[in-house]
Amino acid sequence: MVDQSMAAGAATADEAAVGDYFALLKPRVMTLVVFTGLVGLVMAPGTLHPILALTALLCIGVGAGAAGCLNMWWESDLDSAMERTAARPIPAGRVGRDEALGFGVTLSVASVVVMDLATNHVAAALLALAIVFYVGVYTMVLKRRTPQNIVIGGAAGALPPMIGWAAVTGSLSIEPIVLFAIIFFWTPPHFWALALLRAHEYARAGVPMLPCVAGDDVTRRQIVVYTLLVSPLALAPTLMGFAGPLYGAVAGVLGAAFIVLALRLARDGARRQAVQMFAFSILYLFALFATLLAEYALGLPTSGWSLG
């Protein structure tokens, strides 16, 4: 009976350890990255064997998770100072910094090598760029030095559609670059809405997020600016002829709603408006890419209102 209890306890500890290492990969972020990478892969002309396609998506997910792990390793001191992140595995003491570093580096290298072997050099190089940019540029350089950290650093999170496209074609073209631009300009209003809600935590941790440095009013105005940029930009796939009227309608309606929410936030400045803006921004990006995926997966017309 004692042996069985000890075995059960050991199993529970092992399961907790696995869960902690999985948490280091930032699974919610990883899911969005894989999803946008899938859209780029499906939209790309040509074919990729299903097993290789799944391998490419796995590499995108693992690479993103590895970058998240290295981000947590570098920022463990910041995470311990913030309510939102204090329970993460490293600041909570469940995973050591050295173990997290080794885990993140191993997964980073493995994801790039497997991507190269399974697809091509271009996709592997773009995956490596995303990891290096997120960890080396955003995490290690920008995050603690400039309130524009998320603007510049957002490029790393915008690369997955380009990686998925390159995995199929071995090259790039205007379509994945437009998808990159949509995510890039979407990132500031999405993240700054969260920053408005957590400004006191960032200030305590010494992170120069825009609300801490420039104030809430400036942040809300910047959210409006980027929302006014991304909403018409999101119509580009239909206007350029590689998405159809369904996508155009969804992008138009959601873009108008996005702008309205940004203007309300700028005018009222209430916490409730920031919560709504943050939540809607997630729905906005997911709906755009889900509609693109549906159009291509179902073979719907994509000629749209082409400017060509």
Rank of each mutant, 00 (worst) to 15 (best):
A10G: 10
L263Y: 06
F133M: 05
T12W: 13
W186C: 03
L107Q: 02
G96T: 15
L288H: 01
P91G: 06
V95Y: 09
A23C: 03
L283C: 07
L38D: 04
F191A: 11
P237H: 09
N120H: 11
G244K: 09
V109N: 09
L233M: 11
A214T: 00
A81F: 07
V105P: 03
L159C: 11
A251I: 10
I182D: 01
E99N: 12
G61S: 02
F286V: 15
Q273R: 14
F289D: 01
G40E: 05
V95H: 10
A128T: 00
G248Q: 11
G46K: 03
Y21L: 15
M115R: 03
M162D: 02
Q222P: 07
I174R: 03
K26M: 05
G96Y: 11
T169H: 05
G96C: 10
W192P: 12
V168Q: 03
E15G: 01
F103T: 00
I152G: 05
V213C: 06
L263S: 06
A266L: 08
T139K: 03
P50M: 12
G157D: 13
V224A: 08
T55P: 04
L239Y: 04
G241M: 09
V218K: 12
D79S: 06
E99F: 02
E295D: 10
V137N: 02
L210K: 05
E99L: 06
P50L: 11
A124C: 10
V213Y: 02
Y134V: 07
V95D: 03
L293Y: 14
I259G: 04
T55S: 15
G19L: 08
R97V: 11
G65D: 08
V2P: 00
A7R: 15
H49L: 14
V260M: 10
A262S: 15
L24W: 02
Y134A: 07
T139S: 08
H200R: 14
L70N: 06
A17Q: 10
P245K: 11
V178C: 07
L70Y: 04
F286E: 09
C212N: 12
P211R: 01
L70H: 04
P50H: 07
K143N: 08
I90Y: 05
V250L: 09
R267Y: 11
A214N: 01
G68K: 07
F289W: 08
L293T: 13
M82A: 02
M209H: 04
V62L: 12
C212Y: 04
F280E: 03
P91S: 05
S281W: 00
I51E: 12
L58M: 12
A16K: 12
L263N: 03
F258P: 00
I131L: 07
A44T: 14
L54C: 13
L307C: 02
L38K: 08
I60Y: 01
V105M: 06
I182E: 01
V250N: 05
A256W: 05
A130V: 00
P245F: 14
D3M: 12
I90Q: 06
R97K: 15
G61P: 01
G96I: 07
V151Y: 00
A13M: 07
P245R: 14
I174Y: 04
P147L: 05
L127M: 10
L41A: 14
I223D: 01
T55M: 13
V141A: 06
G308P: 02
F286N: 13
A156P: 08
L229R: 04
G304L: 07
L101P: 01
A123L: 03
G248C: 15
T169I: 04
V42R: 08
A44E: 14
F278Y: 12
I90T: 05
L57P: 00
A257L: 14
